[in-house]
Design a protein around this nucleic acid. Sequence first.
DNA 1: TAAGTATGATAGTATTACTACTAAATTTGC
DNA 2: GCAAATTTAGTAGTAATACTATCATACTTA
Lengths: 227, 227
Amino acid sequence: MSQLTFKLNERLYLRDPQTTILGQKIIEKGIELIDILGFEHFTFKKLAAEVGSTEPSIYRYFENKHRLLHYMIAWYWSWMDYRLDLATTSLPNPVEKLRVAIRVITEEKKYDPTFQHVDEEALHRIVVGELEKTYLTKWVDDDNQAGLFGGLKSLTKKISGYIHEIAPDYPFPNSLISTIILAANEQLFFSQHLPALSNIEKQLPVAEQHNKLKAFIESIVFGVLRK
Amino acid sequence: MSQLTFKLNERLYLRDPQTTILGQKIIEKGIELIDILGFEHFTFKKLAAEVGSTEPSIYRYFENKHRLLHYMIAWYWSWMDYRLDLATTSLPNPVEKLRVAIRVITEEKKYDPTFQHVDEEALHRIVVGELEKTYLTKWVDDDNQAGLFGGLKSLTKKISGYIHEIAPDYPFPNSLISTIILAANEQLFFSQHLPALSNIEKQLPVAEQHNKLKAFIESIVFGVLRK
DNA sequence: TAAGTATGATAGTATTACTACTAAATTTGC
DNA sequence: GCAAATTTAGTAGTAATACTATCATACTTA
């Protein structure tokens, strides 16, 4: 059977976790644990216990837990990029592509059997709750220099390219796309935890929540483009 | 001389820092230190050294450093609310009020002599870089229950009220306002650290950066409202 | 079969977040 | 004006975290 994997930036890890069983277990159980505990309460000690290994063994793969989070989130953006490509290649014009991009960003994330040992639903919850922690640090500039944000950047660039094709005079395509990518996460979080900051009602069926989210993001993007 | 202060939620602190000299120094030096060190590297030990006191003394005012951050950010939202009221009371219609609200949100924050021992410029940098850390935690729901997010929520409600007056049929006024409040911070951060995610050029004079930020936010809000 | 590499086990360090306890200073009652 | 009550400061300690160093063992491959 052929295994599809993403080639991620080498600076994300010390030893490539995709090449060994221990490495794969670190990713798999790491996602599970961060999802359950939250990033602050997640430790390599707990992860080592979970994968039946030891703390120093984990440190041989990742410099620290922040790098592991970076790795997971970089994987997520690669996955989004891949899904966007799958969904847009056959489309004729940028308006259609943009519409599909918004769908891909806002739709419910479900387990993708193409990638075993990655639980995309849990990973999406991690992105919603922990993404900001990858760049709101004292090391942003170094991490950016090292290319750790390449995934988010290239996804943003791709979609803002559609905006540029549709409305070449609009001066803020990158800002617009980074804003809606983040807003899609934030609004899901707010609808669950700070409902006063959102109009997506928690009680709605999940599919309906994602429909509303899509409608909200569309109201922004097509509002900006409408003249 | 009359002292203007904000009455903040009592659950934010153990002892009201506004009532004692030590308390005021904790706020003043706390803002300075978090601004310099970043929240992760900020500790009560370092703060105690800075204010010439001891760790346990600080703990008598705030349960932990997260609560101190909450306090500062709650103060910031109260200040924003106060500035919004000052700027909008005399205005005749919701469109004008909305326009002014966007200006208040996006304009450069300068030291406000009304409030001694609060450096609003530093506080704004803290809000830009650390706001998310107040709610992206395992305790959001409890903290929300305790009313710790009241400031952000009431500011959002006030501005989304203008939206509702202008366009009663628009279904996402709260989502729109929370999104632009956060986006205003994020875009400032991106322009400095992840320029690929923004169209606000770092090299521009600061005043010009804030003009562009305002233009970007206006493009979203008035795009949505335009029919 | 020897050499190299990956993993495992054990122990140790500096820092952090927080607490219990004691000492000193200040306020208040009379 | 002074003892008692109360507030506030300071000392010392703990458990947990984020690592690092060292050594042993197993597995792999030239």
